[in-house]
């Protein structure tokens, strides 16, 4: 039985979702895969909970374990663990604090699994080079498309293929807003308020509606599976703020819907609203679903779809990444 000691840095929605998943799947993973996954540390702004034998996850979720007055960096530097899961809030300008967290862990020979887009969209080469030099794994399936498999799908199942292009819908908030605007003929501002009250859009929605989130995901895909060397700020980005109910109606009259599409191929990386024929698979994505079409030189076109957001969905991607390191 191989023991895997995990720490979670950033115990918000996704970090807690992962703790839930570990609790739920622990026995199954032990029996089926011979992996004894233990949560030995949790840290965020409130402090840290540490137990070398494994924390009681129910207690940890309610912060009932002994809380130590050490910060995340101390836990990363001094803690006794094999793998760090980085789930602090993402910062698209600096990538911090996750960028430092990931570097510190990799330098110490620890594997890293993250859902944090900022550091990968900004410093992809630096981080993957560091991981390679340290002989560690750096996995980040959860950064793109939530539970929808795409990075590992391409790396594992499409190995040997050259990926010519990827395009798709990578932001559930925008897709929800455009779907509601199309179906109800409602103006943008009205549907945005509705999405905010449902928790689908943030109080400051700019990260989603201005296309920043989609651009980050596209940057990660371009670097990770298209072999491109691009930084987030080289993506041409147009969001959905200016889309009018009139534009959606005009499009519909001609047999189109409008979706926010991220598209990457050699020489082009762009986020923009596009006209999609009504019978195209992208047009059928209602609500918060994500979809991607991968064009590979041998396999041809492959389409995947799935839930792009949510605590358990992101935790699913992280959990699969963890297992894949040890299998």
């Amino acid at each position: 039985m191989e023991q895997v000691k995990i720490i979670i840095v950033g115990f918000g929605t996704v970090g807690r979702g992962l703790a839930e998943v570990i609790k739920r799947k622990k026995d199954h993973v032990k029996e089926e895969l011979g992996l004894d996954i233990r949560l030995v540390g949790v840290a965020d702004l409130r402090g840290a909970m540490v137990d070398a034998d494994g924390l009681d996850i129910d207690d940890a979720l309610e912060w009932k374990c002994e809380i130590r007055d050490i910060d995340s960096l101390q836990l990363i530097r001094e803690g006794e663990y094999d793998l760090m899961v980085e789930t602090t809030p993402s910062n698209v300008e600096t990538g911090e604090p996750a960028f430092t967290h990931i570097k510190e862990a990799l330098m110490r020979g620890k594997h890293v699994v993250t859902s944090n887009k900022g550091p990968l969209a900004l410093y992809y080469r630096e981080l993957t080079d560091l991981a390679a030099r340290s002989g560690c794994s750096l996995k980040f399936e959860a950064t793109v498309g939530g539970a929808m498999p795409i990075i590992n799908l391409i790396r594992n199942n499409l190995a040997g293929n050259r990926i010519l292009s990827i395009k798709g819908i990578f932001n559930g908030t925008c897709n929800y807003i455009l779907t509601r605007m199309t179906e109800e003929g409602l103006p943008y501002s009205y549907v945005l308020s509705e999405a905010q009250s449902l928790g689908i859009a943030e109080a400051d929605p700019s990260y989603d509606v201005d296309g920043i989130d989609t651009a980050e995901k596209l940057t990660i895909l371009a670097n990770a599976v298209l072999g491109m060397d691009v930084a987030y700020n080289s993506v041409a980005v147009e969001g959905i703020r200016r889309i009018t109910p009139d534009a959606l109606r005009l499009a519909l009259d001609k047999g189109y819907v409008i979706k926010l599409i991220g598209e990457a191929r050699e020489g082009k990386i762009e986020v923009a609203p596009r006209l999609i024929p009504k019978d195209h698979p992208f047009a059928l994505m209602r609500g918060t679903l994500n979809i991607a079409e991968i064009e590979a030189d041998l396999a041809g076109p492959i389409t995947v779809m799935g839930r792009g957001a949510g605590a358990i969905e992101a935790a699913s991607a992280i959990f699969s990444d963890i297992i894949s390191i040890y299998r």
């Binding site: 200016r242 009018t244 009139d246 534009a247 005009l250 001609k254």
Partner: peptide, 17 residues
């Protein structure tokens, strides 16, 4: 060209072939 103008200060939309 089909033009839709919701109001003076608001942005218009046009469908163009």
């Amino acid at each position: 060209l089909t033009l839709m103008m919701p109001g003076i200060d608001e942005e218009s939309s046009a469908g163009i072939t």
